[in-house]
């Protein structure tokens, strides 16, 4: 039953995404200065939002694990981190494609780009750390600590943006930025299916973790005989 709900949610997300892409390509006009490529923002920005939502949930899961010592929090932590990394990669890659067309280069050591890459590497370290620990409770404990430490670097990385002039476009959603209401609606409208996909992926990954634990338990009892 739960799996069917999940697949239903996934199918709904894909239908919404297709609908949005259709609208983006057919209904929305090209942006005045950038031309057709500007549409990548409808994936680039929601991917970043989704990525940081995932890392935030991973932090909460880490703290909850240390409080309750319930391994389901560890499963949530690793699932959200992995999915967050995937959307972080999507954010970086879409950004690079946009940069190649608008700036003419794939990458520049602009602070916004660098800080995102640092975040990505930090959470990548979390996954490498997990690989190196065999014992499940020790793995859960140390990766919860790692998740808390990683998240505390993120504000440093992001607030230092204020002290630089960056090549990355200034924020258009808050502060002084302005965005056409049609574009804005599409940006948030596209965040909905992308977030839904993230939720489905996290749920599937959590089921895998649970089954992994069941298999491990069976293997242990088989060895006991």
């Amino acid at each position: 039953m739960r799996e069917k709900t999940l697949y239903g949610l996934g199918a709904l997300a894909i239908a919404l995404l297709t609908h949005n892409i259709w609208k983006m390509l057919v209904n929305l006009p090209d942006e005045a200065f950038q031309g057709a490529i500007f549409r990548i923002i409808f994936f680039h920005v929601p991917a970043a939002f989704t990525c940081f939502t995932c890392f935030l949930v991973s932090l909460i899961a880490g703290i909850s694990y240390l409080k309750t010592r319930d391994l389901k929090w560890d499963a949530l932590g690793v699932s959200t981190t992995e999915v967050g990394l995937a959307f972080g990669a999507a954010n970086l890659l879409t950004g690079m494609i946009w940069a190649r067309i608008i700036w003419g280069i794939w990458w520049t050591w602009d602070w916004r780009l660098t800080s995102m890459l640092i975040c990505w590497l930090l959470y990548g370290g979390y996954l490498v750390l997990r690989r190196a620990i065999e014992e499940p409770t020790e793995r859960a404990r140390l990766s919860a600590v790692m998740s808390i430490l990683s998240f505390s670097v993120v504000p440093f990385v992001f607030f230092s943006i204020k002290w630089f002039r960056t090549q990355h476009p200034q924020p258009v959603l808050y502060g002084e930025g302005k965005m056409d209401s049609g574009y804005r609606a599409m940006l948030f409208g596209n965040w909905v299916p992308i977030l839904m996909i993230a939720i489905v992926l996290v749920a599937v990954r959590m089921m895998q973790e649970r089954r992994q634990r069941e298999v491990d338990a069976l293997r242990r009892s088989a060895h006991a005989f």
Binding site: G125, V128, L129, V157
Partner: peptide, 26 residues
Amino acid sequence: IFSALTVNLRLRELMLPMLVYPMLIP
């Protein structure tokens, strides 16, 4: 703190710099 975190791991000498340097960037 990372020295304490990685002390019991396989490949300790590798894990420490890999985890510490991104954390130290700021």
